[in-house]
Amino acid sequence: MHNPNTHGEDEKLGFKHENLEGYIPSLATPAEIHDAFDKAFDFRGDLTITLKTGDSVEGYVFDRRAESADLSECTVRLYPKNSAEKMSIRYSDIAALSFTGKDSAAGKSFEAWVKKYNEKKAAGEKNIGIDAEPLD
Protein backbone atom coordinates (compact mmCIF):
# COMPACT_ATOMS: atom_id res chain seq x y z
CA MET A 1 0.00 0.00 0.00
CA HIS A 2 1.24 3.47 -0.86
CA ASN A 3 2.13 5.65 2.12
CA PRO A 4 0.72 9.18 1.54
CA ASN A 5 3.32 10.64 3.90
CA THR A 6 6.30 9.68 1.74
CA HIS A 7 7.58 11.94 -0.99
CA GLY A 8 9.44 9.66 -3.38
CA GLU A 9 10.05 9.72 -7.10
CA ASP A 10 6.61 8.30 -7.85
CA GLU A 11 4.92 11.38 -6.39
CA LYS A 12 6.62 13.83 -8.73
CA LEU A 13 4.84 15.11 -11.81
CA GLY A 14 6.90 12.75 -13.90
CA PHE A 15 10.18 10.91 -13.71
CA LYS A 16 13.14 10.37 -15.95
CA HIS A 17 13.46 6.88 -17.28
CA GLU A 18 16.79 5.22 -16.69
CA ASN A 19 18.73 4.98 -19.94
CA LEU A 20 19.21 1.23 -20.36
CA GLU A 21 20.17 1.16 -24.04
CA GLY A 22 23.00 -1.35 -24.45
CA TYR A 23 22.65 -2.65 -20.86
CA ILE A 24 23.41 -6.36 -20.36
CA PRO A 25 22.35 -7.33 -16.83
CA SER A 26 23.83 -10.15 -14.81
CA LEU A 27 21.38 -13.02 -14.45
CA ALA A 28 23.37 -14.96 -11.87
CA THR A 29 20.79 -14.99 -9.06
CA PRO A 30 16.99 -15.09 -8.95
CA ALA A 31 17.01 -11.54 -7.49
CA GLU A 32 19.09 -10.28 -10.44
CA ILE A 33 16.76 -12.01 -12.89
CA HIS A 34 13.67 -10.46 -11.29
CA ASP A 35 15.34 -7.01 -11.24
CA ALA A 36 16.38 -7.32 -14.90
CA PHE A 37 12.85 -8.15 -16.03
CA ASP A 38 11.35 -5.36 -13.93
CA LYS A 39 13.66 -3.01 -15.86
CA ALA A 40 12.84 -4.77 -19.14
CA PHE A 41 9.13 -4.18 -18.52
CA ASP A 42 9.75 -0.42 -18.10
CA PHE A 43 12.08 -0.24 -21.11
CA ARG A 44 10.39 1.27 -24.18
CA GLY A 45 12.55 -0.42 -26.77
CA ASP A 46 13.37 -3.88 -28.04
CA LEU A 47 15.32 -6.44 -26.05
CA THR A 48 17.22 -9.49 -27.16
CA ILE A 49 16.60 -12.59 -25.06
CA THR A 50 19.04 -15.47 -25.48
CA LEU A 51 17.58 -18.82 -24.50
CA LYS A 52 19.50 -21.65 -22.88
CA THR A 53 19.02 -23.54 -26.16
CA GLY A 54 21.21 -20.92 -27.87
CA ASP A 55 18.31 -19.41 -29.83
CA SER A 56 17.59 -15.71 -29.42
CA VAL A 57 14.46 -13.61 -29.72
CA GLU A 58 14.33 -9.86 -30.25
CA GLY A 59 11.18 -8.02 -29.32
CA TYR A 60 9.22 -5.68 -27.08
CA VAL A 61 8.32 -6.81 -23.55
CA PHE A 62 4.72 -5.96 -22.70
CA ASP A 63 4.13 -8.09 -19.60
CA ARG A 64 5.82 -10.24 -17.01
CA ARG A 65 4.40 -12.65 -14.48
CA ALA A 66 6.82 -12.96 -11.59
CA GLU A 67 4.83 -13.64 -8.44
CA SER A 68 6.80 -16.78 -7.59
CA ALA A 69 10.33 -17.35 -6.32
CA ASP A 70 10.42 -20.41 -8.61
CA LEU A 71 11.83 -19.12 -11.93
CA SER A 72 10.08 -21.87 -13.89
CA GLU A 73 6.75 -20.32 -12.81
CA CYS A 74 7.75 -16.78 -13.86
CA THR A 75 7.31 -15.63 -17.46
CA VAL A 76 8.04 -12.65 -19.64
CA ARG A 77 5.66 -11.88 -22.50
CA LEU A 78 6.78 -10.07 -25.62
CA TYR A 79 5.96 -9.14 -29.18
CA PRO A 80 8.78 -10.62 -31.28
CA LYS A 81 10.19 -8.10 -33.73
CA ASN A 82 9.59 -10.27 -36.81
CA SER A 83 6.26 -11.85 -35.89
CA ALA A 84 2.67 -10.83 -35.17
CA GLU A 85 2.34 -13.58 -32.55
CA LYS A 86 2.78 -12.87 -28.85
CA MET A 87 5.38 -15.01 -27.12
CA SER A 88 5.76 -16.18 -23.54
CA ILE A 89 9.14 -17.32 -22.16
CA ARG A 90 9.89 -18.82 -18.74
CA TYR A 91 12.58 -17.03 -16.76
CA SER A 92 14.20 -20.43 -16.19
CA ASP A 93 14.70 -20.84 -19.97
CA ILE A 94 16.65 -17.57 -20.34
CA ALA A 95 20.45 -17.49 -20.47
CA ALA A 96 21.00 -13.78 -21.25
CA LEU A 97 19.20 -10.51 -21.75
CA SER A 98 20.36 -7.44 -23.63
CA PHE A 99 18.68 -4.06 -24.00
CA THR A 100 19.42 -3.74 -27.72
CA GLY A 101 16.75 -1.30 -28.98
CA LYS A 102 16.38 2.43 -28.64
CA ASP A 103 14.36 3.44 -25.57
CA SER A 104 11.97 6.13 -26.75
CA ALA A 105 11.22 7.13 -23.14
CA ALA A 106 14.82 7.51 -21.91
CA GLY A 107 15.39 10.89 -20.29
CA LYS A 108 11.82 12.02 -20.85
CA SER A 109 9.06 12.79 -18.42
CA PHE A 110 5.61 14.30 -18.27
CA GLU A 111 7.20 17.16 -16.33
CA ALA A 112 9.45 17.96 -19.33
CA TRP A 113 6.43 17.86 -21.64
CA VAL A 114 4.52 20.34 -19.43
CA LYS A 115 7.58 22.63 -19.26
CA LYS A 116 7.84 22.66 -23.06
CA TYR A 117 4.11 23.40 -23.36
CA ASN A 118 4.31 26.27 -20.86
CA GLU A 119 7.33 27.77 -22.68
CA LYS A 120 5.39 27.81 -25.95
CA LYS A 121 2.37 29.32 -24.24
CA ALA A 122 4.48 32.02 -22.56
CA ALA A 123 6.00 32.86 -25.96
CA GLY A 124 2.49 33.64 -27.20
CA GLU A 125 2.04 30.67 -29.48
CA LYS A 126 -1.56 29.75 -30.31
CA ASN A 127 -3.08 26.33 -30.99
CA ILE A 128 -0.30 24.69 -29.06
CA GLY A 129 -0.05 20.98 -29.46
CA ILE A 130 3.02 19.12 -28.46
CA ASP A 131 3.37 16.18 -30.75
CA ALA A 132 5.24 13.01 -29.99
CA GLU A 133 8.80 12.88 -31.23
CA PRO A 134 9.45 10.53 -34.15
CA LEU A 135 10.73 7.09 -33.18
CA ASP A 136 13.10 6.94 -36.21
Rank of each mutant, 00 (worst) to 15 (best):
T100V: 10
F110Y: 03
I130R: 06
K102F: 15
T6I: 10
F99W: 03
F41E: 09
F41A: 05
D63H: 14
G59S: 00
G124R: 01
H34G: 08
K120N: 12
P134C: 12
I130M: 10
E18Y: 01
K86N: 12
P80R: 08
L97Y: 03
H17E: 01
V61I: 14
G54F: 00
D35K: 03
T75Q: 10
F41R: 08
S109L: 08
G8Q: 07
A95F: 04
A132C: 08
Y23F: 12
E58S: 15
D63S: 14
A96S: 08
S92A: 15
A112D: 15
I33T: 13
S98A: 13
I33L: 09
S109A: 13
L78I: 02
E21A: 12
K116S: 14
D63P: 00
K108F: 14
S98H: 11
Y23L: 00
G107T: 08
E119Q: 06
L78V: 03
L71W: 08
S56D: 09
T6M: 01
L78R: 11
Y79W: 09
S26P: 08
F37Q: 11
E58T: 15
E85T: 00
G101V: 02
L78S: 12
K121N: 13
I49Q: 05
A132K: 14
E18N: 01
T50H: 04
H2K: 14
K81H: 12
K121D: 15
C74I: 06
K120L: 01
P25I: 07
V57D: 02
D42K: 06
A40F: 00
D42F: 01
E67M: 04
A123K: 09
A96F: 00
V76R: 03
F43M: 04
S104L: 01
G22N: 02
S68N: 11
S98V: 04
H2C: 15
L51Y: 12
T53L: 13
P25S: 10
F37T: 13
I89V: 09
L71Y: 13
S83M: 00
L78D: 04
G22E: 03
F41K: 11
I94F: 08
L27V: 01
A36V: 03
E85S: 08
D38A: 01
D38G: 03
F15S: 09
F43R: 02
C74N: 12
S26Q: 13
N82P: 07
T100L: 07
T29P: 02
F37V: 03
P80V: 09
G8A: 05
M1V: 11
L20D: 04
L78C: 01
P30E: 06
E9Q: 13
D55S: 10
S88H: 05
G45M: 02
D70E: 06
S92K: 04
A36S: 11
E21Q: 12
S56N: 09
E58R: 14
I49N: 07
